[in-house]
């Protein structure tokens, strides 16, 4: 977001007598249509599932029990830790972290490069990076699916160039999901890092260079720590949506390897029809995201003091 912070603080209270009326619509709309639903979802996760979808209003811990414990096919084995769902979450976290790292590896140099262009060309570079962000995510995922098909253009091109002898199996693999997430959220990494680097005062680098610091040391020891808030913001903007992604696993992963998003979807739209379990899985996902955001908020307030 291009924040034109202008000059200095502009704290004003012109509208303070009516601020409650001004804020009321947003409180009401978000409170009623998001906060209450989330609370309701929390309640649902403690209800009893109705056979074949829906809930019975009886308190139950079955959803969380199912998530954590494996009681065998028939439900009467001594409970063991259930790895199926935990591994879906771990896999999703792994995929999301992988996507974040890939985005960072490509996104940081790109953002840095753009931010150090002269003002005129900088706008054009930035414009080029922004366009894909405005293109429908579904269309981008479908395009990626088309590109990496077994008989798709990428394989054809690599076969034609003699890089490979047989088509690479890319589609319906974990790698494809990884690639899809990386591709989907790459602009999210570039933009905040760009904003930080743009504000970076290169006098620091010059001072360090005057003291004969090697270039890469300057980058590591001086630039990186100063633009860290931008990097963290970028990482969060990539990590959080990747964690709950649905399109990439469904379209690129062949819907075979579940990620959190597909697991939850299956409980409401698919065969499983287990609402409390879907609500519980959603709550667990939400808690994970909120924990990440809290660390971020704490890191940020520490940076500011």
């Amino acid at each position: 977001m291009a924040a034109g912070t202008g000059s200095g603080k502009t704290i004003s209270a012109t509208f303070s007598p009516v601020r409650h009326w001004l804020l009321m619509p947003s409180w009401l709309v978000i409170g009623f249509f998001l906060l209450i639903p989330v609370v309701l979802m929390l309640i649902y996760s403690f209800l009893t599932k109705e056979f074949r979808g829906g809930v019975i209003w009886d308190f139950s811990l079955a959803a969380y029990d199912q998530f954590i414990f494996d009681r065998g096919l028939f439900g009467d084995d001594p409970p063991r830790i259930e790895w199926a769902y935990i591994s879906i979450f771990l896999r999703s976290i792994g995929q999301a972290m992988g996507a974040t790292v890939l985005c960072l590896l490509i996104g940081f140099p790109t953002a840095y490069f753009i931010a150090t262009r002269p003002a005129k060309t900088r706008a054009i570079w930035l414009f080029l990076v922004t366009i894909p962000y405005w293109v429908n995510l579904l269309i981008r995922t479908v395009s990626m699916k088309f590109l990496i098909r077994d008989n798709g253009p990428l394989n054809e091109a690599m076969l034609g160039l003699g890089l490979i002898d047989a088509p690479l199996q890319l589609i319906n693999t974990n790698f494809a999901v990884q690639l899809g997430l990386f591709y989907s959220y790459l602009p999210f990494m570039v933009l905040p890092i760009y904003a930080s680097v743009e504000r970076y005062n290169f006098a620091f680098s010059e001072a360090a260079a005057d003291l004969y610091a090697p270039k890469w040391t300057i980058l590591r020891r001086i630039v990186l720590p100063i633009v860290k808030p931008g990097i963290i913001a970028g990482c969060i903007l990539v990590f959080v949506p990747s964690l709950g992604a649905f399109l990439a696993p469904d379209l690129l992963g062949g819907a075979k390897t579940f990620m959190i998003g597909s697991l939850i979807e299956e409980q409401f739209k698919g065969n499983a029809g287990n609402w409390p379990f879907g609500a519980a899985a959603s709550m667990i996902l939400l808690s994970m995201v909120l924990i990440v955001l809290m660390f971020y908020a704490r890191a940020q307030s520490r940076d500011q003091t």
Binding site: I11, S12, A13, T14, F15, S16, V18, R19, H20, W21, L22, L23, S26, W27, I30, G31, L34, L35, V38, M41, V240, P241, L243, G244, F246, I260, G261, I264, E265, S282, L285, L286, V289, L290, L293
Partner: peptide, 28 residues
Amino acid sequence: GMIRGGQFKGKSASFALISLPIMVPEIV
């Protein structure tokens, strides 16, 4: 209301509420 409303109690809670839709994952 937020930026021209002066300092008031619950300002950061209001901000959190307004940004809630971005923070909650879409599937949730």
